[in-house]
Write a protein that binds this DNA or RNA. Structure first.
Lengths: 140, 140
DNA sequence: ATGGTGTTTGCAACAATGTTGCAAATAAAT
DNA sequence: ATTTATTTGCAACATTGTTGCAAACACCAT
C-alpha cells in the first residue's frame, strides 16, 4: 500500500505526517520517474498551495528523501532516493536519463557514473550525469 | 581584438551584425567561463532590453555559437562553442565544472565524457556531465 | 481523550524570470 | 540612397519562486 509506505518514510526521516507531505510522497511512489515542481502541482490538483509544494520539496531535499536532477530546460526534477541516502549525503551515483519523446526522467539504477580524472587543483564534490535521448518505452 | 572576433563569428554564422549581438559575444569572449542569462543582463548594463538578451541567446543556441549547460539551481548557463560546432550539432563532449565557492562554471576542455553502456532500448542523443566542487582558483 | 506547544499550512503580497505582439529602428542588399 | 527583411524595445502578460504572518494542525504529555 502506497499510503502506508508514505507514512513509514516520513516517520523514518523524523518528519511529522501531514496531508500534503503524504500526498506528494505518494505521487513519487506511484510514478517511478522524476517529477518537477509543476508536475506535482498539477497532479496534486487544487488541494495544495503552491507554497506548500515548494516548502515540502525543500524539506524532502534537506532530509535526503529526494534528490534533485538538473535539466537543460530550467526545471529541476526531483526523484526519490534509495534507502541508503540521508541528510544531504546522497549515494546518488546513478545516471539520469531524460527522454526527448515522452519527456520523462528516470534514474538508471544499474548504470553507475564513471569516475573522472580532473585537472590539477580541481576537487570534485558531486557528479551528475545526464543523458538525453529516447527511452525504452518510446523506442518501439 | 575581441571586437573583431565577435564580428567574424557573427559573419561566419550568417547572422547580421548588431550592437546587441556583438556586446553579448564580447562578454563571452572576455569571460571564458559560462554565463547565465542574468549574468549577461547585469554585465551588459542598462544598454539592452531583457527580451533582446533572451532572443539573442536563443539565436546563438540555434546557430550553434553557444551551447547550454544544465545546472542544479534552475539557471541555465551558456558557453561559447569551439569551432567545430554548428547548427545545433555540437561536438560538446567535455565536462562542465561548477565551483561551489566562486560560483563560476567552466568547460574542462581536456576532460572528455566517458562513453556509457545504456540498458537495452535506450538510445543516447546527448550526454551532459556536471561536476561540482572547488575549482583551481578557489582551491589555494 | 484533552489541552498545551511547536510545526506546518494557506493566504497575500511581492520579486524574479520568461513569453508574445506589434510598431519603430536598423542592417543588408540592390 | 532606397527598399526590404530582420532586429529591437516596449508594454503587457504569464509563470515561477520567495517571505511574513496568522490560523490550522500534528504531536506529546498528561
Amino acid at each position: 500500500m502506497v499510503n502506508k509506505k508514505a507514512d513509514e518514510l516520513l516517520k523514518k526521516n523524523h518528519l511529522s505526517i501531514t496531508g500534503g507531505r503524504k500526498k506528494i510522497l505518494e505521487l513519487f511512489l506511484q510514478h517511478d520517474g522524476a517529477l518537477s515542481h509543476s508536475d506535482i502541482e498539477k497532479k496534486a490538483g487544487e488541494k495544495f498551495d503552491r507554497v506548500t509544494v515548494y516548502r515540502t520539496l525543500q524539506t524532502f531535499l534537506e532530509k535526503g528523501l529526494v534528490h534533485s536532477i538538473p535539466t537543460a530546460d530550467n526545471s529541476i526534477r526531483y526523484a526519490l532516493c534509495k534507502d541508503d541516502c540521508s541528510g544531504g549525503h546522497h549515494h546518488d551515483d546513478h545516471v539520469h536519463f531524460i527522454c526527448n519523446a515522452c519527456g520523462s526522467t528516470v534514474c538508471l539504477e544499474g548504470v553507475t557514473v564513471p569516475s573522472i580524472e580532473l585537472p590539477g587543483g580541481y576537487v570534485s564534490e558531486q557528479v551528475d550525469m545526464l543523458i538525453s535521448g529516447v527511452c525504452k518505452n518510446c523506442n518501439q
